[in-house]
Amino acid sequence: MTGIYLDHAATTPMLPAVRDVMFSCMTGGFGNASSLHGFGRRAKATIEDARATIAEAIGCSPREIIFTSGGTESDNLALFGAAALAQGKRRIVTTAIEHHAVLHSCAQLERQGFEVRYIPVHKTGQLQWEALERAIDQDTLLVSVMYGNNEVGTLQPIARIAELARQRNILFHVDAVQALGYCDIDLSALPVDLMSFSAHKLGGPQGVGALYCSSRVKLGAQMFGGGQERKRRAGTENVAGIAGFAAAVAQSLQFREQRQQNARLLRQMMQDELARSLPEHAFVVNGHPDEAERLPHILNVSFPGISTETMLMRLDLEGIAAASGSACSSGALETSHVLLAMGLEPEVAGSAIRFSFGDGNTEREIIAAARTVATIFKSLRNKS
Results as ranks from 00 to 15, higher is better:
residue 349 A to Q: 04
residue 194 L to Y: 01
residue 75 D to T: 05
residue 8 H to I: 08
residue 165 A to V: 12
residue 369 A to E: 06
residue 155 L to M: 06
residue 332 A to P: 00
residue 262 N to F: 07
residue 139 D to T: 13
residue 20 D to E: 15
residue 235 G to D: 04
residue 246 A to M: 00
residue 268 Q to H: 05
residue 62 P to T: 12
residue 90 R to S: 15
residue 371 R to Y: 01
residue 330 S to R: 02
residue 170 I to T: 15
residue 19 R to E: 15
residue 140 T to Q: 14
residue 48 E to F: 10
residue 63 R to D: 14
residue 221 A to D: 07
residue 144 S to L: 00
residue 228 Q to D: 13
residue 326 S to I: 10
residue 115 E to D: 12
residue 39 F to N: 08
residue 355 F to E: 09
residue 132 L to K: 08
residue 222 Q to W: 04
residue 324 S to K: 05
residue 254 Q to I: 06
residue 98 E to H: 13
residue 349 A to V: 08
residue 52 A to R: 11
residue 128 Q to G: 03
residue 91 R to S: 15
residue 77 L to H: 09
residue 321 A to K: 15
residue 57 A to D: 10
residue 233 R to W: 11
residue 316 D to W: 02
residue 99 H to I: 14
residue 45 A to Q: 11
residue 144 S to D: 10
residue 63 R to I: 02
residue 309 E to W: 08
residue 90 R to E: 00
residue 252 S to G: 07
residue 354 R to A: 00
residue 290 D to Y: 04
residue 299 L to F: 04
residue 180 L to S: 05
residue 355 F to R: 02
residue 126 Q to T: 05
residue 123 K to I: 11
residue 240 A to M: 07
residue 78 A to P: 09
residue 90 R to H: 13
residue 207 G to D: 01
residue 158 I to Y: 03
residue 337 H to G: 08
residue 94 T to A: 12
residue 38 G to I: 14
residue 168 R to F: 07
residue 226 G to L: 11
residue 8 H to E: 06
residue 340 L to F: 09
residue 147 Y to D: 07
residue 166 R to E: 15
residue 167 Q to F: 09
residue 261 Q to L: 08
residue 233 R to Y: 14
residue 362 T to G: 04
residue 101 A to W: 03
residue 49 D to Q: 15
residue 248 A to D: 03
residue 207 G to H: 11
residue 352 A to R: 01
residue 199 A to V: 02
residue 39 F to T: 05
residue 382 N to F: 00
residue 20 D to V: 08
residue 286 N to F: 11
residue 312 L to D: 14
residue 64 E to T: 00
residue 289 P to D: 14
residue 168 R to I: 12
residue 37 H to C: 13
residue 171 L to H: 02
residue 337 H to M: 03
residue 309 E to R: 13
residue 240 A to K: 00
residue 192 V to K: 07
residue 317 L to C: 12
residue 117 R to S: 08
residue 219 L to G: 03
residue 77 L to I: 09
residue 86 A to E: 01
residue 264 R to V: 14
residue 336 S to Y: 03
residue 239 V to T: 15
residue 12 T to L: 10
residue 73 E to M: 11
residue 333 L to P: 02
residue 315 L to C: 10
residue 27 T to V: 11
residue 228 Q to Y: 12
residue 343 G to P: 12
residue 326 S to Q: 07
residue 86 A to V: 12
residue 19 R to P: 00
residue 176 A to N: 01
residue 375 T to S: 14
residue 125 G to P: 12
residue 65 I to R: 02
residue 278 L to E: 00
residue 225 G to S: 05
residue 144 S to A: 15
residue 352 A to L: 05
residue 293 E to S: 07
residue 315 L to Y: 05
residue 106 C to Y: 02
residue 1 M to P: 10
residue 76 N to M: 10
residue 11 T to L: 08
residue 269 M to P: 06
residue 31 G to I: 13
residue 358 G to C: 03
residue 165 A to Y: 05
